[in-house]
Nucleic acid binder design. Structure first.
Lengths: 215, 215
DNA sequence: GAAGGAAAGTTACCAACAGTAAGTAATCTG
DNA sequence: CAGATTACTTACTGTTGGTAACTTTCCTTC
């Protein structure tokens, strides 16, 4: 890498030249930069640098900073994408029937796992460390996933006259459970997603004493 | 910082000199370096550098590398310390009675939360990002916490003639839930740990339909 | 008791990377 | 055609993880 292409002129024929947009040509906007970041991360792993992202997008570093901000903002934006993907896949998995059953919960979890499996490196990039204040960044990612879950849970609780205050804690707990299980599952090849999903659904559905009799 | 003290001689009077250990004097071993790392992190936050750790320990950087290895190893070692602290606090909280009840589960979770609260920055350092492969490092931390939990769960499952294979997935799930809830709780001041612990215990004990009636 | 070796550390360095300032080429406006 | 504006690039700074090479002391052996 690094190429050492520093001499000002060079670049043979038609150089990409500064100035106003060429006209109706392809511009490199925020979305293109994020797409490029996803490609680099998918290809080269979670350790991708801003330079690598810029190169993949066909631009230089300051453009990346202009379009998406610093590294924390990049991670945020990608986290947003990934959690949107997870939320919509999970929502689709339980949309076939009203209410929640053990089976639809299993599908919900399995869908979430499969999105992680399809976005392995992106998941590692987003949940893993990038900047110094990553932990709180991860919380932000989680927050996006929890928002719809929280409102559903709160609605249910309110519907039965119970304190809806638990909804937020539960949502964060469930998201954390899913994240950790996903991470663990990624390292366990040969362990089918549907089996793990069913196991976790069992726990969330029946609770601990549902399977473990007390003293 | 940086001091710019580069001139070879200097240093006035009694310089710390290399060579064999001075005798019965204090040596700087692995534990001292880890202690120093904890102090720096507690004082200055999760963004502490290796240099800062070395300085706090009164040694230079290569010593840190000799004693604990690189940054990933440092995070590992600190994760080990923190999870040991959490495991023993949690174990103590449920040791007062045999078997598991909703009340002892609540105390278990609360103890875990309180350890996190007492080691705020260390928790953020360990669960947050440091190196590029942090996500897998976090898995290792989790693994240490899950090991005792897995064996307990597996024992229970086996005792009732059920597949103990779920134990590992459940343990990772529960640890992930606790980590995320802890992280969220850290940002919510004025929310008492015992309340949150009771809420999470409710979820883990009764399961979702225990509180949310089906369609 | 001097010569050789092994410890134990320090200094000084390198490479990589996040982030930014200053310069430059095209386009638009008058 | 002059000047402002836009949009981008080059080239830099500062920090930090990690390491190589040198130095000093102590212990051993002849």
């Amino acid at each position: 890498m690094k190429q050492t292409v520093d001499m000002g002129k060079a670049s043979g024929t038609t150089t990409r030249r500064p100035g106003r947009p060429v006209g109706g040509q392809l511009e490199v906007g925020r979305e293109q930069v994020l797409d490029a970041a996803e490609r680099v991360i998918a290809r080269e792993g979670a350790g991708a640098s801003i330079d690598a992202v810029a190169h993949e997008a066909g631009v230089t570093k300051p453009i990346v900073y202009d379009r998406v901000g610093g590294r924390a903002d990049l991670a945020d934006a990608l986290a947003e994408r990934l959690s949107d993907r997870m939320v919509s896949a999970s929502a689709a998995a339980i949309a076939t029937e009203p209410g929640l059953t053990r089976e639809s919960l299993t599908r919900f979890i399995q869908a979430s796992l499969e999105v992680v499996g399809r976005n392995r490196n992106l998941f590692l990039y987003v949940t893993g460390g990038t900047t110094d204040q990553t932990a709180l960044g991860r919380l932000k990612l989680a927050e996006r996933s929890t928002t719809p879950m929280t409102s559903v849970l709160a609605q249910w609780r309110t519907g039965q006259g119970q304190d809806p205050d638990v909804a937020q804690a539960w949502a964060f707990g469930i998201v954390g459970m899913l994240q950790m299980v996903s991470l663990w599952w990624l390292t366990q090849d040969e362990r089918p997603a549907d089996v793990v999903a069913a196991q976790i659904a069992d726990l969330l559905w029946h609770g601990l004493p549902g399977a473990i009799p007390g003293p």
